[in-house]
Amino acid sequence: MKTIYILWLREIKRYLRSKSRIIGSLGQPLLFLLALGYGLGSVFAKAGEGNYFQFLAPGIIGMSIIFTAIFSGIQIIWDRQFGFLKETLVAPVSRLNIMIGRTLGGATVATMQGLLVLILVTIFGFRPYSWALVPVAILFMLLVALLFAALGAMIGSLLDDMQGFQLIMNFLVMPLFFLSGALFPLDGLPAVLTALVRFDPLSYGIDSFRVLLTGVGSFGLGLDFAVLAVVTAIFLGLGSYFFSKIQV
């Protein structure tokens, strides 16, 4: 337990110490929020879908969580390069505990980042439909963060160096984000797109945020939770497996 805690603490300390990372990773969500939120707002309203800014905010929270979580998992590659990974691998601690400590740390960091974005969108005019449900939304944010931190750890364990990073960004993280319904409503989509959206775990995460923060959703909170929980369990299992196979 103590080993999990100390590795968790390491991720938190590293996050809090890199102010540039915190601020830097707020830039992208902010850009999406302002450019799309205000840019498409009038079209959205004309189509009878209501307030786009209100619709978009949960999607942008999800975006910041998935980016931060996957990136924190991929940090395994940096730890490999800067040698710290070896220090943990020669320690008399099970690989499972190392992986869990790191992943919980990464998930906590991603949730904090998601919270920052929630605060940011609130400043720009977003209003949760019930403040009482915000803590529940935070729990779901943590679950989504855990899912993608585990996915990131799996990728980080499989890649030897940063060469594959661009590939992961363009062919995994970006599609996961764009196909998640973060930016558009899920009704009336072409069949292929609907299938893809349904296949993307982030869709269920963002749907749960939307239900809890704006009161409307597509899948229902029960299904959201079930899918997120099952996929998280699978990724944690796979992540631990591949992490235990690392040789340096």
């Binding site: 103590k2 080993t3 100390i6 590795l7 390491r10 800067f82 710290f84 220090e87 943990t88 320690a91």
Partner: peptide
Amino acid sequence: SLDDDLTAIENMNLHGVL
């Protein structure tokens, strides 16, 4: 194989706990 973002004592502590 140190963590550059941690302090000397934090690196030591982490090792001791592990």
